[in-house]
Computed example of a mutant assay.
Amino acid sequence: MMMPHESSILIHLLLLLQLLLPFTFSFLHSPPVHIPTLVPHSPMPLTRSGFSAQTQLDFTTHCNSSCFHRREQEEPTEQLTEKLGFETLYADGSRTLTAVDVEAEDELEGDAGHFAHPSPRSGLGVKLRHKRVRRQIYGADGRFNIQGDNFLLDYPFSTAVRISTGCTGVLVSQLHVLTAAHCVHDGKDYVKGARKLRVGFLIPPSINSTNAGLTSSKKSLVRWVRVKRTRVPKGWIQGSQEVSMDFDYALLELRWPHRRPFMRLSVAPSSDDLAGKRIHFSGFDSDRPGELVYRFCPVEEESSDLIYQHCDARPGASGSGVYGRVWDNSLERWERKVIGIFSGHQWLEINGENLDYNVAVRITPLKFAQICYWVHGNRLDCVHD
């Protein structure tokens, strides 16, 4: 086990490596992605939630070749439009349903086609036997505990927050937190803990202590803030149908603004357009209670809706903001941006082979437009860099 100072030195070296990586790439960048326009209808009132579901932190799904190769542009426009509608849950337990219209189908052709559609590469997956054993740690554990004021309060680690149902979230505005839908809703009903949902901000021990010599032995504290409203895409709320990871995201609006840095959203590019082809995320893994845990790894596979990787993670990390270094055309530099939401674990069955991955929901142009509308409340502000 590494000592705290050794861990800090290693984290410093990793961050330096991240800064240097972008300059090893050519400055030939893909053209800007077209962002569709979502036009919301007037919200319709729904019956109050029963809050009958149980939180499922260890979220696992199965996928075969048909669901892996499915693309948004292949779905009927009416079905896709319905999935982009959303429910809003308010703090008093009331809820509404908002339907949306999406611009003409011929204008959506670039939504799922903004990167070449890959196929699973042989040898990357794990050949499984009859008995399947859930794993979210691959080989040697590559996670790092983030400790000390210099890291916990510094960007990008300061953007990670706790969700009172046991998950993680990421700050994406002064009022909004992006997390996984399954942390608040099981596809049929809201979880019990969503009735009084809260977001937790880590406070390093030194801020609450007058004796600096005692800080090393103290745990970080958490300041909890109530959630004003929660929004979940209709694509996640499928009733009796089995839920998929494609729409496993939700947005929480806080009762009052926080004062911490937040991370901007981006349409997820192809992994070839990410610095180092790597993704990163920090979360509150259940096997390291009270600690913020950071990890990074290369993208192994990608479909139109999901990012497949072998970043080590445990239950509790669900809802973490998955980010990468993306080229920002307006700033003309590489920027860390949220390109996905860590969902959980998936068994991918392709050509008779069982592949084993941790999975993040990728932010497509349509999902970017939807989440952006939730944040701004004005579709005119939702344009991509």
Rank of each mutant, 00 (worst) to 15 (best):
A181P: 12
R195A: 13
R231M: 14
I237P: 00
M245I: 00
D154M: 03
K218I: 11
S206G: 12
K188V: 10
H185G: 01
W256V: 06
V184H: 07
V170Q: 03
I237G: 00
S158D: 05
P156I: 00
L153G: 00
R229Q: 15
I207L: 14
L152F: 03
L265R: 01
E253H: 04
Y249L: 06
P233D: 10
R264M: 13
E242N: 14
V170P: 00
N208M: 15
L202H: 10
V172M: 01
F157Y: 12
T210N: 13
F201P: 04
S206D: 10
W236I: 06
L171V: 05
I207A: 12
L178S: 04
V243S: 05
H258Y: 09
H182W: 09
I203A: 00
V161I: 05
H258K: 01
R264G: 13
P233C: 09
L221D: 14
P269H: 06
R259A: 14
R264T: 11
L252G: 10
D246G: 03
R223N: 14
A160L: 06
H258E: 09
G235F: 00
S266C: 07
R264Q: 15
R226N: 15
K234R: 11
S206Y: 09
T168H: 02
L221M: 08
S164R: 08
K196N: 15
N211H: 15
T210Y: 14
L178I: 08
S206C: 11
S158A: 04
G200Q: 06
C167G: 15
V222G: 03
P156D: 01
P261Q: 11
R260Q: 09
A250S: 12
L214K: 13
Q174T: 14
S266W: 03
L214G: 03
W224G: 07
A180W: 01
G200P: 13
R226W: 09
G200D: 09
R229E: 15
G166S: 07
K188H: 10
H182R: 06
R264S: 12
L254R: 06
G187C: 08
V161W: 09
F157G: 03
V232D: 01
D248Q: 00
F262G: 00
K188Y: 08
T210I: 04
R195E: 13
Q241Y: 10
D248W: 02
M245N: 06
F201V: 12
A212Q: 12
R162W: 00
T168A: 02
D246R: 09
I207Q: 15
D149R: 15
T159M: 04
V161R: 03
M263G: 10
S173F: 05
P261C: 07
L175C: 08
R259Q: 14
R223S: 12
L171M: 07
F247E: 08
S244L: 05
R223F: 10
R264H: 15
P233T: 11
N208G: 15
H258S: 04
K234V: 10
Y249S: 07
K192E: 11
F157V: 08
P257K: 00
Q241I: 08
R198M: 10
P233L: 08
L197K: 05
D154L: 06
T159A: 09
K219P: 11
L214A: 13
Y249D: 02
